[in-house]
């Protein structure tokens, strides 16, 4: 799915202007990282794309189009930073939820759940409740829960932000593997430069609040990528240095 963000400005009713004239085109099958300092409005932009903004709390200028049109009935996936699994459902049952909502036949549901559980190496944990497994495992389930109902685009809001370094890299590798296989459009919010370069085809640097698009970088690193290896490559280091120069000034500003 193509995501078109045209001249979007968002202001909270209490007066804070978080985004100013942001335009961005995410092509079908693209993997775009939104990178910016804390408070620059990157999560707000993601919520706007997902249609989660409360009009009572903020006003939006500009237009967001999904495949050129309105949001009606499009399947979006959203992976939150905080764990939003349903605590009263087992891991397998959590993966079912999206498929139940989209009325996927039961037999199909069970089979797809088995595949997804295997995909992220959670075999044997199907019938555990979320509180019984680690944060990394819960985040894996959040990821495949979203894949289960085959959304046309996946929005991710710092999904690995709460994980330790090892789990973060493992999950980055899994996400890359999945994306390379399925080529679902992904819009990924992060404040971690290395993560953005590791994952995305394009990195959009946002300025400090009110967030504007400062620059867009192509990341011409070859596929398949391996997060454990690529950090050592000269191309990676070169990109990191280049983008950091842009980002540095925005990071330096103290978030209000």
């Amino acid at each position: 799915m193509r995501i078109s963000i045209e001249g979007v400005g968002i202001q909270f009713r209490k007066g804070v202007k978080v985004l100013d004239d942001v335009s961005l085109e995410v092509a079908t099958g693209d993997f775009v990282a939104l990178l910016g300092p804390s408070g620059c409005g990157k999560s707000t932009l993601l919520n706007a794309v997902a249609g989660l903004l409360d009009p009572a709390e903020c006003a939006m200028l500009g237009r967001i189009a999904l495949d050129g049109g309105a949001r009606n009935g499009t399947r979006l996936g959203y992976v939150f930073q905080r764990d939003t699994l349903l605590p009263w459902r087992t891991l397998a049952e959590n993966i079912h939820v999206g498929m139940e909502i989209h009325a996927v036949p039961v037999a199909h549901r069970e089979q797809r759940t088995r595949e997804l559980i295997a995909l992220v190496g959670l075999d044997g944990f199907e019938h555990y409740y979320p509180h019984q497994v680690s944060g990394g495992m819960r985040q894996r389930v959040q990821l495949v829960r979203t894949l289960a109902y085959e959304p046309e685009a996946i929005l991710m809001d710092e999904p690995f932000g709460a994980l330790d370094a090892q789990n973060r890299m493992l999950l980055q590798a899994e996400l890359l593997r999945i994306w390379e296989r399925r080529r679902t459009t992904i819009l990924f919010v992060t404040h971690d430069l290395a993560e953005a370069i590791t994952l995305a085809q394009r990195v959009v640097v946002l300025s400090k609040r009110p967030g504007r698009v400062k620059r867009i970088y192509d990341i011409p690193l070859p596929s398949p990528r391996d997060p454990f290896e690529m950090r050592a490559s000269p191309a990676f280091a070169e990109l990191e240095t280049r983008i950091w120069k842009d980002l540095r000034d925005e990071f330096r500003a103290v978030p209000a």
Binding site: L52, G73, Y78, T84, V97, I101, L155
Partner: peptide, 25 residues
Amino acid sequence: DPELVKALRVMGGDRWDLARYVVLP
């Protein structure tokens, strides 16, 4: 939990889905 409500809404859940999956449990 408003986050759970949000999660269900992006999955495409309507009022009934919200009641069934989040509110009642």
